[in-house]
Design a binder for these strands. Structure first.
Lengths: 338, 338
DNA sequence: CTGAAAGCGCTAACAG
DNA sequence: CTGTTAGCGCTTTCAG
C-alpha cells in the first residue's frame, strides 16, 4: 500500500510539507504558482492523504456511526432497514461522509460499540435506530455531549434531535379509514412492546375508536411476536370469538402479510370477511394478493432526513427544528376495500 | 468528548505512558501489580484509547470497507442485501471489526471511495459486491496489493479471493427439477446482463436442457429489467406464442414474484398452467401464494464467509481455499408442483 | 506568501 | 519488568 506522504510531495515540488498541507486544505494565501507545482507533484506521485493522520489532528473523521439495536435480526429481515439505510447513505454521500456500522450481540456489546465510536474518536456523530423506551445509550451520549440523532422517538429526554413519523396520527388516520368503510369491530396487531413506535400507533388506533364511539377490546389484540411464532394459534384465538373483528390495523406490512395468510388459511376472505391495513408500504404490500392497504411512512426520507439533521448538527449549522416529522400517506389498496 | 489520554492514565498510576500502552496491548512482560494499578487508573478516569492514533502507528484500522455498486438502488430493494450484510456483520462482530460503507452515484465516485479507503488507510481490507465482468476496481486493488474478497465471481483474474455459489450448478439443478416434472418447454428470466452470476445461471439452465435433449429458444427468454419495467408487455410477448413455455427458471425471487403476478393477471394458473422456480429463498418466496420453489443460496452464509475469508487474509492466516463455494439447496414448494 | 517547529495520542525499539 | 526516545502523517501556530 503505497505510502506516499506529504513529505514526498514536498520534496518533489521543492517546497515544505506545510505548504503542501496548505494546498490540500485550500488555504487562501498560497500563490497560484506553487499551488500548481504541488498539485502536479501530487498527481505524479499518486498522493492520497492519510485519513487517520488527518483525523488525529483535526478531530474530525467524516464518519457517521450507525448503531444497530442488538436484536438486529428482526430489523434486517424487514425491508424497512435497507431502505432507511439507502436514505442515509444517499445524503451522506452528498456530503462526503461515510457510514460506520457495528453490530452487537447484546446490550453490553452495543454500549461498547458506542463508546468506541465516541470516546475512541471514530465517528463525528451517531445515529440511533429504534431506541428503547429508556435507552441507556441516549443517556450516555447526552452525558458526553456527543452529536447524535434518534431515528424514532424517545420518551424521557426533551430537546434531543430526532426524526420520526407522527405515528399516532398515522394510526389514527388508517383506523379512521377502516371506520369509514363501516367497520365496527377493529382489531389491532402490535409491534415489539418496548418500542415507542408501538405505543404511539396503539394510541392513535385507540383514539380513533374512542372518537368514533366504537368499542375497544383487548380480545382483539394480537401481539406481533406471537403471530410470527404461532400464527395459527394467535389467529384462531381471536377469530373464534363470536364478536370477532371485521378488520385489523397491523403495525407492519410484513406482519400484515402473515396475518392475511393465516386468515386466508382459516377460511376468511380478504377483504370480504376481514379487512387489513398495514404500515410501511414495502414492496411486499404492493405485490401481495390482494394488495395491502398501508401507511407509507416515507422510509427513504426518514433515513435521508436523519443523516441530514445529524450532519447539520456536526457542521454547526443552525437547526430550526429539533424534531423532524416525515409526513405519512395512506395508500389504499384492495385489502381494505369490500 | 472527554480527552483522557494515555498520559493522564500514566500520571495517575504513577508510571510511564509506554507502560500504560503495554497494559492496553496486553504485553506479556508486565508485573501484575502495575497492571492492576494501571487498570484501576483507566477505570477511574474513564479512559478509552483513541482509535485514530492507534491506527496511525499500527497501520491497522480494524475496519472493513464495503464497496457498494454505484447502482445500489436495485441492490437495496432486494432483501438479499440486508441478509448478506447481516452475515458480514455477524462475523465481523466476533473479530471486533467494524464495517465502513460508502456509497457512490457513479463509477468515478465509486473508484474514489475505494481509493480513499485503500490509500487513505481507512480500512484493512475491502469487500467487493457484485463486481462487473471487467471491474476496474478489481484491477486497482490488485495493483495496490490490497486485501480484498469478491462476493460473487469475476472472470479474468485467477487466484483472487472470492466467495460464491456454484450458480451454474444451482441453475442446472433447478432446471432439472422442472424437467423431472415433465416440462418440455422451459423459459428463462435473466438478471442484469453484465453480472457474472447472470451468465452462470443461464449456462446451467442451458446445460440442463441440452443434456435432457430439450430445445432452447431465445423466444422463451425474458429479460428481468424488461419485466420489471413493463411486465404485461414482456409476458404477453412470450406467452402469446403457440409454443409457449410451461415453466420458467427465474434468477431472482423478487422477479419470480413479479412474473407470477403478471402470469396470473394474464389468466394463467400457477402451477397448473405454468410452473415457476426462483432463486434466493427470501421471505417473499415462502409467503407468496402459491409459495415459490426456489434455490436457497445461503445468503447469510455468503456474507459470513466473505467476511471470514477477508479477515483471515488480513490477519495473515493460512488460506487453503481461494474460492469459497457456499452450498445451495433446492427448496421445493407449490409453484412447481402440478 | 512560505518554512520551521511543535504536537495530535499512540506504539515500539532501545536501554537500562 | 519499565522509562526514554523517536516517530506514524498531518495541521497549525509562529516567525520570517
Amino acid at each position: 500500500m503505497s505510502s506516499i506522504t506529504i513529505k514526498d510531495v514536498a520534496k518533489k515540488a521543492g517546497v515544505s510539507p506545510s505548504t503542501v498541507s496548505r494546498v490540500i486544505t485550500n488555504h487562501p494565501k498560497i500563490s497560484p504558482a506553487t499551488k500548481r507545482k504541488v498539485r502536479e507533484a501530487m498527481e505524479e506521485l499518486g498522493y492520497h492523504p492519510n485519513v487517520m493522520a488527518k483525523s488525529l489532528v483535526s478531530k474530525s473523521t467524516k464518519t457517521i456511526g450507525l448503531v444497530l439495536p442488538h436484536s438486529a435480526e428482526d430489523l434486517f429481515t424487514n425491508p424497512f432497514f435497507s431502505e432507511v439505510l439507502r436514505g442515509m447513505l444517499g445524503y451522506a454521500n452528498t456530503k462526503q461522509y461515510d457510514v460506520l456500522m457495528s453490530s452487537a450481540n447484546n446490550q453490553a456489546e452495543e454500549m461498547e460499540a458506542v463508546t468506541r465510536m465516541v470516546l475512541g474518536g471514530r465517528a463525528d456523530g451517531i445515529i440511533l435506530m429504534e431506541p428503547r423506551k429508556e435507552d441507556p445509550i441516549v443517556s450516555k451520549l447526552l452525558e458526553y455531549q456527543f452529536p447524535f440523532v434518534v431515528l424514532g422517538r424517545t420518551l424521557e429526554h426533551r430537546g434531543i434531535l430526532s426524526v420520526n413519523n407522527d405515528n399516532q396520527k398515522a394510526a389514527y388516520d388508517v383506523t379512521n379509514h377502516l371506520i369509514d368503510q363501516g367497520h365496527q369491530r377493529i382489531g389491532f396487531t402490535s409491534g415489539p412492546p418496548d418500542l415507542v413506535v408501538s405505543e404511539d400507533r396503539l394510541k392513535g388506533y385507540q383514539q380513533a375508536l374512542v372518537e368514533a364511539g366504537l368499542p375497544f377490546s383487548t380480545n382483539w389484540l394480537i401481539r406481533g411476536e406471537f403471530l410470527q411464532k404461532s400464527g395459527f394459534h394467535a389467529v384462531s384465538m381471536v377469530m373464534n370469538q363470536i364478536e370477532r373483528p371485521t378488520a385489523f390495523v397491523v403495525t407492519d406490512d410484513v406482519v400484515a402479510f402473515s396475518l392475511m395468510r393465516e386468515l386466508v388459511a382459516a377460511g376468511f376472505h380478504i377483504p370480504k370477511d376481514v379487512s387489513i391495513v398495514g404500515f410501511n408500504n414495502i414492496l411486499l404490500s404492493e405485490m401481495s394478493n390482494p394488495p395491502i392497504t398501508t401507511v407509507d411512512i416515507g422510509i427513504y426520507q426518514l433515513g435521508f432526513s436523519t443523516m441530514q439533521l445529524l450532519i447539520q448538527k456536526i457542521q454547526g449549522e443552525e437547526i430550526n427544528q429539533t424534531e423532524v416529522i416525515v409526513p405519512h400517506r395512506l395508500v389504499i389498496r384492495e385489502s381494505s376495500m369490500k
